[in-house]
C-alpha cells in the first residue's frame, strides 16, 4: 500500500509544502521535517494494517499512530509536535479537495437524470440530520456530565 503510493505521497507532500508556504507563509524547508514525520506515521500505519489479521480501516490506524506519537507521555512528543505544527492542517486539506475537484464533472454527470436529484436531496437531509442528532445528544450529555 505504502510502496505502491510512495510516488503519489511525495507529489502530494510537495503540493502541501507549497500550499503551506502560500497560506501560512512557512517556507518549505522549515515545514519539511514535519511533513516527513507525517509521512513516517503513514508508513508505520500501512505496515500495521498489513500485518493485522482482521479488518481495521487504514485511516483509523493512521490517526491512532499519530495520536500515540504525540501523547505527552511519548518520548520526544514535544519535538514531534514542534515540527508537525509547522504544517497547517488546512494546507493538508486543500489537496484533498483539489483532487476531488478535478474529478467533479464525472461525479456531477453520475447524479444527472432519473432519481438523481431525489437522492441528492435525501442525502443532504440525512447529513444535516446526522449533524443535528449529534449536536443535540452531545450537548445534553456534556451538560449532564458537567463538562460544559
Amino acid at each position: 500500500m505504502f510502496k505502491k503510493n510512495l510516488n503519489n505521497l511525495l507529489w502530494i507532500g510537495g503540493i502541501v509544502l507549497l500550499g503551506n508556504w502560500v497560506s501560512v507563509k512557512i517556507p518549505p524547508w522549515e515545514a519539511l521535517p514535519g511533513l516527513l514525520i507525517l509521512l513516517a506515521m503513514v508508513g508505520i500505519a500501512c505496515l500495521l494494517n498489513k500485518i493485522t489479521p482482521f479488518y481495521v480501516p487504514l485511516i483509523a490506524y493512521i490517526s491512532t499512530v499519530a495520536l500515540i506519537c504525540t501523547l505527552p507521555q511519548f518520548p520526544g512528543s514535544e519535538i514531534i509536535l514542534r515540527y508537525v505544527e509547522k504544517v497547517s492542517f488546512l494546507a493538508l486539506c486543500t489537496p484533498v479537495v483539489a483532487y476531488a475537484g478535478i474529478a467533479i464533472t464525472k461525479d456531477l454527470e453520475a447524479l444527472k437524470g432519473g432519481a438523481g436529484w431525489k437522492i441528492v436531496v435525501s442525502t443532504l437531509i440525512a447529513l444535516v440530520g446526522t449533524y443535528l442528532g449529534s449536536v443535540i445528544v452531545g450537548e445534553i450529555v456534556l451538560k449532564m456530565t458537567g463538562r460544559i
Binding site: L39, V42, I59, I62, V65, A66, V87
Partner: peptide, 8 residues
C-alpha cells in the same frame, strides 16, 4: 492519509 495523521 496526511490529513488523518495531522488530525491524530
Amino acid at each position: 492519509w496526511f490529513l488523518m495523521a495531522r488530525y491524530g
